[in-house]
């Protein structure tokens, strides 16, 4: 798939408390998560982000808690892709499981406000503002099947239909 959007740039170690603070975890409704997404990292994020925009960050994005509310909040904002130098493990698997595209790449050449185009099949990130191209790390085959199916549950349903589960 090809996505194009504006970049919201964050630094290293953006933890899940910053992505969705625990004080909002008494409600897992998408709308609640959307309103408070990234609140403790950028209080204006949810009002500024538009459908298709991208989150770009440094190392260890999504560290901390296992709360799936974090990638769900990002997805609920309409964010198309999260690109980071690296992801914390549970956030990484949660994103694939819920069908949120995430890519690992060197993000130093992408700035806040840049417009980028991402081809999730080739892993190519085109920075239209800087006129540069960045290659992301390839995604393991099983995981791209998961995310392309729309997540683990959609994948499971397909398996049941196919009589394999």
């Amino acid at each position: 798939m090809v996505f194009s959007g504006k970049v919201f740039k964050f630094g290293d170690n953006i933890d899940t408390d910053a992505i969705i603070p625990a004080r909002y975890l008494n409600d897992s409704n998408d709308e609640n998560l959307r309103i408070h997404c990234m609140e403790d990292a950028d209080g204006m994020f949810s009002s500024r982000v538009s459908e298709g925009d991208c989150i770009v960050a440094g190392n260890n994005f999504g560290c901390g808690s296992s709360r799936e509310h974090a990638p769900r909040a990002i997805k609920a904002c309409g964010v198309s892709v999260v690109i980071a130098k690296s992801f914390a493990r549970i956030f990484y698997r949660n994103s694939f499981n819920i069908g949120l595209f995430i890519l690992e790449a060197d993000t130093d050449g992408i700035n806040d406000g840049d417009v980028i185009e991402i081809n999730t099949d080739t892993g190519e990130i085109k920075n239209k503002t800087e006129n540069s191209i960045i290659k992301s790390k390839p995604i393991p085959k099983f995981m791209s099947e998961l995310v392309n199916a729309g997540g683990l549950i959609a994948y499971a349903k397909k398996k049941i239909k196919g009589g394999k589960a």
Binding site: S66, E68, I90, R93, N94, N97, I98, L152
Partner: peptide, 9 residues
Amino acid sequence: GVGSTDLAY
């Protein structure tokens, strides 16, 4: 540790 969807599966 895993996520909620993992637990569902």
